[in-house]
Design a protein around this nucleic acid. Structure first.
Lengths: 148, 148
DNA sequence: CCTTGCACCTCTAGTTACTAGAGAGATTAC
DNA sequence: GTAATCTCTCTAGTAACTAGAGGTGCAAGG
């Protein structure tokens, strides 16, 4: 039985994050020692490692919740797991496309900036008047989702 | 003078978002009508448009705050604006690199999934045991920042 | 046996950039 | 005049944690 700190080291997930996962029901409530400290066995460690890997692949916690409940029923078809992973792939591809467009525009802005004075700065100018950029994504309707 | 709804349409930023920008000091406090409704002039519209374009390029609000204060001093060197845009470009490039790696791994997972039963599903398997993937990014230390 | 010090406990609040909703007042259109 | 639409403030919620306060458990050294 591992304490939360050992589990944290073993799975590569920070201690408060583990408690958070328990709070939102991604991990079952841990057993407790006589002194009320959490204790974890092999299963919890595997589950947590699964979660970490899925997070590294960018799956949102809700998708991970679904994947976990799928993995609890090994005799079912894996079509559902496939669908979740495909959706994630599509989301990643969409984000890449978006970011590549942003990159191009940022580069254009920077190349055009003569390094002079604010009044002549293309960076500021382009931001102030989008007509001055090539914006194929102009007036997209909603703002960016490239957070991070 | 525009009411908040007209400004919203003109600048392509939602009404609650405009109020939010005022609250956090990105926009100055608006003038008010006799009935306490916000009124905006040309300057506010330009400033808001600037903010929207910068957001579309993925700049975080803090960076935008800096860019706005730069644009208020048109006689200064534009090195600072350049630096902010360069940092943004670097951030975008880093995110692209990260996402491309994720995409490759997701594709590998999906290709290997025979479409059978959970017990044999590569998706679940790879997530449960990362040794089974090619992970050059394994044990990156911190979890993903690809939110969205 | 006692103390030092680290690990653990709970709880609250903060992060980013908004979005949603309640309940009430202002304006505009007919 | 009244109905519809806008606007107002305020609170709370989103994703996925992170940080901090204030208090307890436990193992090892002296």
């Amino acid at each position: 039985m591992l304490t939360i700190g050992k589990l944290s080291d073993a799975a590569g997930v920070k201690v408060p994050t583990i408690r958070y996962y328990e709070e939102i029901g991604l991990l079952p409530e841990a057993e407790r020692s006589a002194g009320n400290q959490r204790l974890y066995g092999q299963k919890a460690q595997e589950r947590l490692t699964f979660i970490r890997h899925a997070r590294e692949l960018g799956f949102p916690l809700d998708a991970i919740r679904d994947l976990l409940s799928l993995s609890d029923r090994p005799d079912q078809s894996c079509a559902a797991a496939d669908a979740i992973a495909s959706a994630q792939l599509a989301a990643v591809e969409a984000r890449i496309a978006r970011l590549v467009a942003l990159k191009a525009e940022l580069e254009r802005m920077l190349v055009q900036c003569a390094g002079g004075v604010i009044a002549d700065c293309r960076v500021i100018e382009v931001l102030g008047d989008h007509a001055k950029c090539h914006a194929d994504h102009a007036h997209a309707g909603h703002l960016i989702e490239v957070a991070g």
